[in-house]
Design a protein around this nucleic acid. Sequence first.
DNA 1: GCGAGTAATCGAAGCGCTTCGACGAAACGG
DNA 2: CCGTTTCGTCGAAGCGCTTCGATTACTCGC
Lengths: 335, 335
Amino acid sequence: MVTIADVARAAGVSPSTVSYVLSGRRSISEDTRRRVQHSISELGYHPNAGARALASSRTNVLALVVPLRTDLNVPVVMQFVAATVTEARTYDHDVLLLTKNEGPDGLRRIAASAIADALIVMDVETSEPRLPVLRSLHRPVVLIGVPADPGDLTCVDLDFTAAGAASVTHLADLGHREVALIGPSPAVYKRGTSYAGRFLRGFRQTATKRKMRAGSFPCAPSYDALRACLDDVFAEHPGVTGLVVHNEAILGPLLSELNRRGKQVPQDISVLAVCPEDMAEAQSVQLTSIAIPAAELGSLAVEMAMRRLDDGGQAEVRLLSPRLTERGSTGLAPS
Amino acid sequence: MVTIADVARAAGVSPSTVSYVLSGRRSISEDTRRRVQHSISELGYHPNAGARALASSRTNVLALVVPLRTDLNVPVVMQFVAATVTEARTYDHDVLLLTKNEGPDGLRRIAASAIADALIVMDVETSEPRLPVLRSLHRPVVLIGVPADPGDLTCVDLDFTAAGAASVTHLADLGHREVALIGPSPAVYKRGTSYAGRFLRGFRQTATKRKMRAGSFPCAPSYDALRACLDDVFAEHPGVTGLVVHNEAILGPLLSELNRRGKQVPQDISVLAVCPEDMAEAQSVQLTSIAIPAAELGSLAVEMAMRRLDDGGQAEVRLLSPRLTERGSTGLAPS
DNA sequence: GCGAGTAATCGAAGCGCTTCGACGAAACGG
DNA sequence: CCGTTTCGTCGAAGCGCTTCGATTACTCGC
């Protein structure tokens, strides 16, 4: 194992000088810096993480708490995780993966044993039970999602209320008068996952404002549930011409089922999806969609966590404006 | 911050005694043990990870290298990751997430800075370029997948050759004489990802042995590619009665496309999928399938890594036997 | 009843790093 | 030209833990 002492010896300086070259915390002459850097790459030196953490109380590790249930959209989670890891590396940090079922004790353990400098927590519920622990950790925490009372915790999310509104506005502008929201699984609403409710609210409010007939239909992610759901939609809304789908898992089934029922998209019925861009493009019909910016959220979360670590900055709540992309699955309402 | 000295003071013993209570490396009287344990939970003590790593050169962290491309099956990766994290916790280890695009330097960094005790590497290719680095790390490494020459590296995977064979055997036993394999994207083959080739080999060999007509058709994960692929299948094999699908992403599209073409499953054509159990059950038709045991592989990988850490055990290559579950998407060949 | 174990505990060294105070040399201001 | 900064470097302390003797007090076998 190559230690800082080895590097120091090779470069003819003291260990502390090597340390200062690495951290840049004190000025070092250009000449010395070069010699040290040279010895470092010559010897293939990498600072021992444990020693560094012990001495500096900085671990350069970010803890990421992800939900591992499968009723959540898996690709979205994955995109988020990928972006987080990638972004963290640009700040010279690694990512420790924790699952939601570690629970409060797990979070406490991570903080108390100084395993990570900051935490990023996905899948936040409206009345989030982990909030008290998270606050007591004395470590920067970034929530993905917005609980009822974030307090001094940083939050970042898509502005789902605005997204719900935008979906209705888009259809209204195309002349649709009767629309239905096919939402996430009832389990998601029951759990109080905050985005579901926020989207629904935006959807409802705007529909009312635009004087449209609108219904909301949660749908579990299975063919049978989808068929039943569509039966309900058309029974309760015989005149429906626009579908907003806030449930990535059933996009494929929905399109083939509409096809089977002889409904053409967008001639007979418009479909607007809320899902990642690539998913909207991968369907049998390219879907007009409001993007779920998983990757953007991931790197933003890291960035915010880092800022709080460095500047000790203030807590903030950041909601990304929805972006709607027309791809031809929505059109003028049939007259 | 609560330190081991605090605990020692509270329990009226020396720090080393507390350490021995925690590690069990020396005998401790029942009475002392109880007092120490009590102080520990009283004070909410958690050993500082950095200090522990520094003193013991054990980090209790497992590095997991995952591919983050999206042409790989995302849910499978996720299941694997989840199982790994969960299993690691039972060994009191945490999981550090690395992406494949960290490359060899990233691996070297992890080992050299003593961030993790062992590595688990997913998405191994036949001629795996990371092999030399991995071997030079002097740390236990478990590969998910089997490269051409594993050497002293531990490997674990589904026995894809046997799986390919089993798929054909199943259809042959049902009287099918002409079958087609709808495989992973051409990119997967080109990359030399080992499982694709191994499955294909088993499929081919058994088809020959059973004197069947058989074709293989890679398919990119999109509707258009699938349609083209099916066109090819039926053009080259007008008499095909059995489809083996080794491509999770197109299962849904495939079923609806077959439906659109007026082919009933399994009356007109049998479909056998290679995919996780839950995916086989979630389709519009419940699919007879050979399971991809992602979760099992994940926990097995951790177990093997731990064994090598503790016992310094031997390298081994472990191939799980395929398990085929009939669910009604395969039936007797139409006469 | 004495030497040889064994069980239970302690003290101290040391893991590899960061960081603080000190110090000599050079630069600077009046 | 002398006191004061500033620059560049060093030495040493110490982060919180594990682990290796050393030590004491017993227990046994004969």
